[in-house]
Amino acid sequence: MTKVFGAHAVSVDGYITGREPGAGRGLGDGTMLFDWYFDGDTPSGTFDGFRLSEPSARVFDDLAGRVGAIVAGRNTYVDSDRFGGGGPHPTARLFVLSRRPAPEVSDRQTLVTSGIEDAVAAAVEAAKAAGGKDVGLMGGGVVTEALKAGLVDEVILHQVPVLLGGGRPFFRELPEQVRLRLVEAVPAPGVTHLRYAVER
């Protein structure tokens, strides 16, 4: 069964970017959130150029292997310079969720303006067609909206031991509590990988 999960590198105080992220500025001054992608000696089996510690490579490649489609929010799309017309994953289809037209959407990307339910439904179909894989969510706004709609099965935090003190938070305001159950915690150099199941 196809699962929907949100996964992101996050500071201990809950930020997924540094201050002043945006087009041409990337993720602001919080790029150290992703240092663990390159600080190890184990190459990723999915992403060229990534060299992680052995425990991080195991977690990262397991997650990457699950992904058949990705839903990203407009801010993530713009901050990442539109993923160069492709996507953040080498093989997964990208669905961009936006309330208004997004600039320069390519034929390898799909713009969805009708809400999170439609974006996730389209991504689930693409993930199933990709061999029964899962859907990854990118961006705090997308994950929050999907949680509100009851569409998220797992939340995965790659928690980096830093307090950024500002930036874009991973989670936005929710109308009610969402209970999580810790499934796995993997300590690694420069990051702790935390996988939670969303309890319904």
Rank of each mutant, 00 (worst) to 15 (best):
H8I: 12
M1D: 15
P189F: 02
E173T: 15
G85H: 10
I116F: 04
I16K: 03
L111V: 03
D62R: 14
V59S: 14
D61W: 01
A121H: 02
F83M: 06
T91Q: 14
T192E: 10
A127C: 03
V142N: 04
G139M: 09
G150K: 03
Y37W: 15
A149L: 01
T2S: 11
F60C: 06
G150W: 06
F38N: 06
S98K: 07
V186F: 01
F5V: 04
D62K: 14
R74W: 05
D13L: 07
E117P: 04
G141E: 14
A123H: 01
L147M: 08
V142R: 11
T91N: 14
V143D: 02
D41H: 13
V162M: 02
S11W: 08
A23N: 11
D118V: 07
G167R: 09
A121Q: 01
L97I: 00
R93K: 13
G131D: 13
V78G: 14
G22W: 11
A146H: 01
T91L: 11
D39N: 14
G115S: 01
A130W: 02
V124C: 06
R25G: 02
A92G: 07
R19L: 06
E54G: 09
L147R: 02
H193W: 12
T31L: 15
T2C: 13
L94K: 03
L182V: 00
V162G: 01
G18W: 02
A129M: 04
A129G: 06
P187I: 00
M1S: 15
A149I: 01
L151I: 07
T2M: 05
V143F: 02
P103S: 10
V105W: 02
R74D: 08
Y77C: 06
D29P: 05
L157C: 03
V105S: 07
D118S: 13
G26M: 00
K148T: 10
A122K: 10
F60H: 13
R181D: 04
D107A: 12
A149Q: 10
L174R: 05
R172K: 15
D35I: 01
T110M: 08
G141D: 13
V4C: 05
R179G: 12
P88C: 06
E154W: 07
V12F: 09
E199K: 13
A64R: 08
N75K: 15
G24H: 00
G22H: 03
E184F: 03
G40T: 01
V135Y: 00
T76Q: 14
G132F: 02
N75M: 15
D13T: 12
G73E: 10
L194D: 05
R25N: 09
K133E: 04
G167T: 05
M138A: 14
E176K: 15
T76W: 01
G85E: 12
D134M: 05
D79K: 11
D62F: 11
A9T: 08
A102Y: 10
T42P: 02
E104C: 14
I116N: 04
T192G: 04
P90S: 12
I70E: 12
G85V: 03
G165D: 02
M138N: 08
G166L: 02
P161H: 07
A57F: 00
P43D: 00
L147I: 05
